[in-house]
């Protein structure tokens, strides 16, 4: 397995050299300023209506995750689109047990996703371990590792439950209560 390096985007040394005619910055002063103004409401309206999610089906719940993205439920009408690359995605859905062997890969997916990003814990296994509670091979207490916004209990939860989770996530983003962005 390749070594995953720590990402430090706000580090001056990592900035590329000067590009002529282009102003580059490593500070987040503009977005910090916007967070205090009414403009953030407009930004959040845009964000909450295009929640693209990663397709990483990790267990049996993954089947529900896949069928949610398909034509029958037609989540495109809410702006919820399955994406195959984490670079395109806004929402990471932890859809199953996280084994100790898979956890580095999942963290790498999370690091590859561009901010703003959110996490949904989908299914009992992701929330508490489910039947793999106190197992030697699963990583426990996922909420300490990822900033989870919405928990969806069930074994597995139905596709409607996942859509409900997205609606709740949209409400959290609109209310500026989500953990994906720091207010």
């Amino acid at each position: 397995m390749a070594e995953v390096k720590a990402v430090t985007p706000n580090n001056k040394e990592d900035m590329p050299e000067e590009i002529p005619g282009v102003m580059t910055t490593s500070s987040s002063a503009i977005s910090d300023f916007l967070k205090k103004t009414k403009a953030q409401d407009l930004i959040n309206w845009g964000r909450k209506n295009s929640l693209w999610f990663t397709v990483n089906a990790m267990g049996c719940c993954g089947v529900e995750l896949l069928s949610t993205g398909m034509a029958h439920y037609d989540t495109d009408r809410f702006g919820i689109i399955p994406r195959n690359s984490p670079r395109h995605a806004d929402v990471l859905i932890i859809s199953g047990y996280v084994t100790k062997k898979y956890l580095p890969a999942l963290q790498r997916i999370w690091d590859q996703m561009p901010a703003p990003k959110w996490v949904i814990c989908f299914g009992d296994c992701a929330i508490s371990g489910g039947p793999f509670y106190e197992s030697y091979s699963t990583a426990q207490n996922i909420d300490e590792i990822f900033p989870v916004d919405v928990y969806v209990p069930g074994c597995p939860p139905r596709c409607e439950a996942l859509i409900q989770a997205f609606v709740e996530l949209q409400q959290k983003i609109a209310a500026k209560k989500d953990k994906g962005t720091e207010y």
Binding site: E134, N141, Y151
Partner: peptide, 16 residues
């Protein structure tokens, strides 16, 4: 880990 005397099970779990 599948031996009966294995002790490495997580004991801080399922706080939710």
């Amino acid at each position: 880990p599948l031996r009966k005397d294995y002790k490495g099970f997580p004991n801080k779990t399922a706080r939710n």
